[in-house]
């Protein structure tokens, strides 16, 4: 087995186990920490796909900022083990799990059938490992500049909205 393959399988194991733990842990703080682990694993998977810059951004934005916010909020709430962390109803639960399983099966089936129908060109297999960062930035700032600017506006709106939301005293129906 090549090193790349071993890396991929180890990372897959890490990502899937920690993703499982996110939805199975009853303590939300453990869920959040497992999700942070998943993010780090996904960043490592980006590295195996030669997307080094994205891996770094994934670490900074997701693992370093978003998940820290989640963990902080959860720790401030200080929820212990929850009484009803899963939805009620055995039948609906089974239905939900079944539908999710069917969805996963459908996608996997589609991927395998699609593989046999169309041969994906293995361009990147033998290509030299090039630094994709420069190409990425050129694409981002030359071709997709409008989307980039729109995202900037979106972030500004979100920042203002979040501050307004967290400072408000509960809107028009506030009792306290």
């Amino acid at each position: 087995m090549s090193v790349d393959a071993i890396l991929f399988w180890i990372l897959t194991l890490v990502v899937l186990v920690s993703a499982m733990s996110v939805i199975l842990m009853t303590n939300p703080i453990y869920s959040a920490l497992c999700l942070a682990m998943t993010m780090v694993g996904v960043a490592a998977i980006f590295v195996t796909l030669n997307a080094y810059f994205l891996a770094g951004v994934q670490l900074i934005v997701y693992a370093g900022a978003v998940m820290v916010l989640f963990v902080m909020v959860l720790m401030l709430f200080d929820l212990k083990h929850e009484l009803q962390s899963f939805s009620r109803g055995k039948f609906t639960g089974a239905l939900k799990i079944g539908s999710v399983g069917i969805l996963a099966g459908l996608i996997v089936g589609a991927v395998t059938i699609g593989k046999s129908l169309t041969e994906v060109k293995a361009v990147a297999e033998n290509a030299v490992v090039v630094d994709t960062t420069k190409i990425l930035s050129q694409n981002l700032f030359l071709k997709n500049i409008f989307g980039f600017e729109a995202l900037g506006v979106l972030l500004l709106v979100i920042a203002v909205g979040t501050v307004a939301l967290s400072r408000s005293k509960g809107g028009t129906h506030a009792r306290d």
Binding site: V40, F53, V57, L59, I60, A63
Partner: peptide, 12 residues
Amino acid sequence: VFILGISSLAAY
């Protein structure tokens, strides 16, 4: 980017 990303994990 790597160093910044890794050291931002210190918050956990």
